[in-house]
Amino acid sequence: MLALIAGEGALPAAVAAAQTRAPLICALRGHVPEGLTPDITFRLETLGGLMEMLRAQGVTEVCLCGAIGRPAIDLGAIDDLTWPMVPRMREALQRGDDGALRVALELFEGEGFGIVAAHEAAPSLLPPAGVLTEAQPRPDTAAEADLGAQVVAEMGAADQGQACVIRGARVVAREQADGTDAMLARLAPPRGGAPAQGAGDPFSWAADMMGDMLGGAADWLSGQEAEAEARAGILYKAPKPDQDRRADLPTIGPRTVPAVAAAGLAGIVVSAGGVIVLDRAATVAACDRAGLFLWVRG
Rank of each mutant, 00 (worst) to 15 (best):
G69I: 15
G69C: 14
G69K: 13
R70S: 07
R70M: 03
P71Q: 01
P71A: 01
P71V: 01
A72H: 03
A72S: 10
I73V: 11
I73E: 04
I73C: 02
D74Y: 02
L75V: 03
G76S: 11
A77F: 02
A77Q: 13
I78M: 08
I78D: 11
I78W: 04
I78A: 08
D79E: 08
D79G: 06
D80H: 12
D80C: 01
L81T: 06
W83M: 10
P84L: 03
P84Q: 06
P84M: 05
P84T: 04
P84A: 04
P84K: 04
M85T: 04
M85I: 01
M85V: 01
V86R: 00
V86S: 00
V86W: 00
V86L: 01
V86T: 00
P87L: 00
P87W: 00
R88I: 03
R88S: 13
R88M: 06
M89A: 07
M89L: 15
M89K: 08
M89G: 04
M89I: 10
R90I: 12
R90A: 09
R90S: 06
R90G: 05
R90F: 06
E91G: 11
E91Y: 11
A92G: 15
A92P: 02
A92T: 10
L93C: 07
L93R: 15
L93P: 02
Q94M: 14
R95N: 13
R95P: 03
R95A: 15
G96L: 03
D97R: 14
D97N: 12
G99W: 09
G99A: 15
A100Q: 08
A100C: 09
L101G: 12
L101Q: 13
L101C: 12
R102M: 07
R102V: 05
R102Q: 13
V103L: 12
V103Y: 14
A104I: 01
A104E: 03
L105E: 02
L105A: 05
L105Y: 08
E106I: 05
E106G: 12
E106C: 06
L107D: 07
F108A: 02
F108C: 04
F108T: 05
